[in-house]
Design a protein around this nucleic acid. Structure first.
Lengths: 197, 197, 197, 197
DNA sequence: AATGAATGAGCCTTCATTCAT
DNA sequence: AATGAATGAAGGCTCATTCAT
């Protein structure tokens, strides 16, 4: 009996979709590709999903959830702001390079149809706010310089979101080293006092 | 009579394409959209361009050139590294928010076919190297701390490339303020000495 | 326990099908619609019916039977031809506006596959012939003018079959008034003389 | 040069569509059938038509127009009501048996999408009203008995619309004979007196 | 009896591209 | 230079139907 493997088809499909979307982009990826990669026929996907667009939604939903859960855990921890930020950065970079939905999340959100898009955007906003809260906490406790927390959060996000664009699995830097470098760099910015000339 | 205006048809087409690609993405944009927006019929585009893909290439080529020219000028100037970096950052952000090809450049390079893609990638590499050179110069002259120049350049690029994702024309920060903030932030990172705990 | 209700499943299905076919047409109606409206799943229908087409057949079969039974009763009665025709017309119109399979019978017979179609056509022919027989009887007894009984029957059928296309439940005329009007009109034609009382 | 034949592709397509719709019904007919029957490929149809639904609209529009023009001409003529009605009936039946869009008009109007449907329904209403006007005129001039003109018009329409359901090109009655029979029958009804000569 | 899973067939539609004019 | 006509390729989606459970 193949009951043990057939038990969770939808997650498999979502993962396959994430892979396809990541490799070729949402628009270029075809339902055929996705179906084939889970050994199904195209129409069978419609037993699990209403739409190609819903498939995108499910991929992105799972992905943001993963990111948000991770960041929430850090936020709720008893670490000091500096340590929280280091962990947040490190986690974010690791997830980015390992979670197959990441690229799609950064690139294809705009392809989501109305109600889906709003939900994902909300989740993304939540992530930014969690990050911002850590920044604020650091400022309040005197660990970080008193600069615009909103722009600071966006500055951090930009820097770390870019890693997947140049990271190569067997390149000169390990994920750990990258995380260390980015942590150092961003903390210097955050602690920095007088703006240099 | 009309020869003087018709001679500039290709640039118009490229600009229209840049607009369409930026708004809807390379794949979603149709030749029809582009043709219509320059008051031509779809097949007429083939008198100016071999391909939809070549059109993408031309858009991206023009865009990287603009970026590279701007950065080369800064590099060749007699400013000190700190000032050069400030200018580079400022220029980059301004261009990004004003040049219509930027988003396409960041998002759709992968859609380019082989020979085109290589050329654009080369140009992008050139841009990174120019930036890296400034970093190296700053380290050599003692203005910047001695940290990996390659990763530093990528760090900078990530941070500043992200601006267009959240900038809103009538938002709370002006382009100038953003440039100032990013310049400050990045210079703090670059000058920073002791790695924070 | 539940055997008494489950034994009547097929009639329920046929009725649901009649409803769906009437509202959306045979081709547009889906097995899913039908199944759902009797709280079953699509494949379950195949326990009761061989085919979507058989379902159509069953709907139409039940419908023509109803019509034929009603007309046979009238034919067999001891009324005079004039009275028979009045009753036939009245019944036909009432059935048409109340029996859910009627529209499908008029519109979708052609969708029936070969053997089914023939059977239904035969039943429809029987109905025409019963009507024709009344006409003939009326001519023989001098109540109706001597005109082609076949065309006369078709003339009658056309007139009364059209009622459902314009009748509105809360419109200006009641079913009774309509039946009266059509009875008067057709009898005038048949008698070829003054309008009957 | 084949310029003389290629001049009017759209009318050809509409006619082919009318044929296909009539034979198989709007839903069952495929764009492929239609395209093939005018020796085109399926996508080529989209140069001439926005939609399959628009194609249906064009077919029906042409058809109602034909009917309405014919009836308007009769209405505007100087014939007396009785003669007008005879002509109207005769024309209607002829058109019905010859114009390929008729069956589709009677059966598939409901498949039209919103704005199209309204337009066709309006045209159909116009036809009914023209017919009704003749009835009214006849009553006013004492040629017809004084009975509900609206129901009378619907009675007439039902009777004559049914002809195409039983007419066979080489059947026992010619179109002319049928028209004569229906004219006689309906006038008897309308006059409520002896059969006309 | 009932159904979740799966699919083959097929349809409408879009679009980049070609070609004759 | 410009375009109307035409098309090949392909994609998303629907649905009746089958089958194992």
């Amino acid at each position: 009996m193949a009951s043990s493997e057939s038990s969770a088809r939808l997650p498999q499909i979502i993962e396959a979709a994430a892979q396809c979307f990541q490799e070729r982009g949402y628009l270029a990826a075809t339902l055929n590709d996705i179906a084939t990669s889970v050994q199904l026929q195209k129409p069978t996907l419609y037993h699990y999903v209403k739409n190609k667009n819903e498939l995108l939604f499910l991929v992105l939903q799972g992905t943001v959830e993963t990111y948000n859960h991770a960041l929430e855990e850090v936020s709720a921890s008893s670490l000091n702001p500096t340590a929280k930020l280091r962990r947040a950065i490190s986690q974010h970079i690791s997830l980015q390079l390992e979670h197959p939905g990441t690229v799609t999340l950064f690139r294809d959100v705009e392809e989501l149809e109305k109600p889906y898009r709003n939900e994902i955007r909300l989740a993304l906003k939540r992530y930014r706010e969690l990050l911002q809260a850590i920044v604020r906490e650091g400022i309040a406790q005197g660990e970080f310089a008193n600069r615009d927390p909103s722009m600071t959060a966006l500055f951090i996000l930009g820097a770390i979101n870019f890693v997947h664009r140049w990271y190569r699995p067997h390149g000169p830097q390990s994920i750990l080293e990258i995380a260390q470098f980015y942590g150092d760099s961003l903390l210097m910015t955050l602690r920095g006092v007088d703006p240099p000339v």
